[in-house]
């Protein structure tokens, strides 16, 4: 009995000692995954994810609280990058393929109050007091902050029109009703 206790204790202590030493010798600074994630985010701090800015979202992602699909401006591409980085599987079809939308100003009702360009996180709205404002399409993330502050409803989000340059072949429709009753899209969970 004593032998058993002694030998096992000895074994445990010596193994623990080895591990403890190894943990010191092979110490690795834990990587700043949060910073890495934050670098991937759009950085406009638009708040559509529900977290305080992109840094907050990155932190939530790193803690595993936020879904990789939480960032609408990032879209599918960002969701895929995040999923790959975090090693989670992403059902690509689950990402709502929402048409990108950007803001536009209706000149007739704009009163030039400058509220919209004060809230714009990317300085995409140009204008001055008492002047009609203009949205720079290339800089607009479609975060809708301006839409919510506009007192007259002059600034509104509209879907980006598809042009010859941006049109993309649709994915071929899957075989009609392929195992539609029992089938799931992919397998191998």
């Amino acid at each position: 009995m004593l032998g058993a206790i002694l030998s096992l204790s000895l074994l445990g202590v010596s193994l623990g000692l080895v591990l403890g030493l190894a943990a010191r010798k092979f110490r690795v600074e834990s990587g700043g995954i949060e910073a890495e994630l934050q670098a991937l985010m759009p950085g406009s701090n638009c708040g559509q994810c529900g977290y305080p800015g992109c840094a907050g979202a990155a932190a939530a992602l790193a803690r595993g609280e936020a879904a990789v699909t939480c960032c609408p401006p990032g879209g599918k591409a960002l969701a895929e990058t995040l999923a790959a980085r975090l090693g989670v599987s992403l059902d690509a079809s689950a990402v709502a393929e929402e048409l990108p939308r950007i803001a536009g100003v209706q000149e007739e009702i704009c009163i030039g109050c400058t509220k919209c360009f004060k809230v714009c996180p990317t300085d995409a709205v140009l204008g001055a007091a008492k002047q009609i404002h203009v949205v720079i399409r290339e800089a607009c993330t479609g975060c809708a902050k301006c839409e919510n502050t506009c007192p007259t409803g002059a600034i509104m989000l509209t879907p980006v029109p598809v042009t010859l340059q941006t049109w993309v072949w649709p994915r071929p429709a899957a075989t009609p009703s392929p195992e539609s009753v029992l089938a799931g899209a992919g397998a191998g969970a």
């Binding site: 950085g43 406009s44 990032g74 990317t122 290339e138 800089a139």
Partner: peptide
């Protein structure tokens, strides 16, 4: 294209 746009936007935001 959207990535390029996002990079540009990030710069703007920063």
């Amino acid at each position: 294209r959207s990535k390029l746009k996002q990079d540009a936007i990030r710069e703007l935001a920063e």
